[in-house]
Amino acid sequence: MNPAHYVFLAVILFVIGAIGVLVRRNAILIFMFVELMLNACNLAFVAFARMHGNLDGQVVAFFVMVVAAAEVVVGLAILMAIYRARRSASVDDASLLKY
């Protein structure tokens, strides 16, 4: 199978994730779309690693997974704090820091 197809799939997944981040208001969903984008990137890394025949992309994919896990922990903690303070998980409600 042509590795280029995986790259196209990664692009499609990334775009879906980006659109999801932009249009959804629920913070948890936004998180999930972010994860989708990260995984699209992972897929692209792995595909490129395969195409070029070296392991660099695969190593980076592992890195991304670890960082994503850490990020989710911190992010969900913040989310919990916001939810407790505001009784809402909508990111539009947390818009105090503006002009």
Partner: peptide, 17 residues
């Protein structure tokens, strides 16, 4: 120009994108 700072995460995300 200040009005650009809406406070909405999505608009910041869009500008980053």
């Amino acid at each position: 120009l200040r009005k650009v700072q809406t406070g909405f995460v999505r608009s910041y995300a869009l500008s980053m994108l």
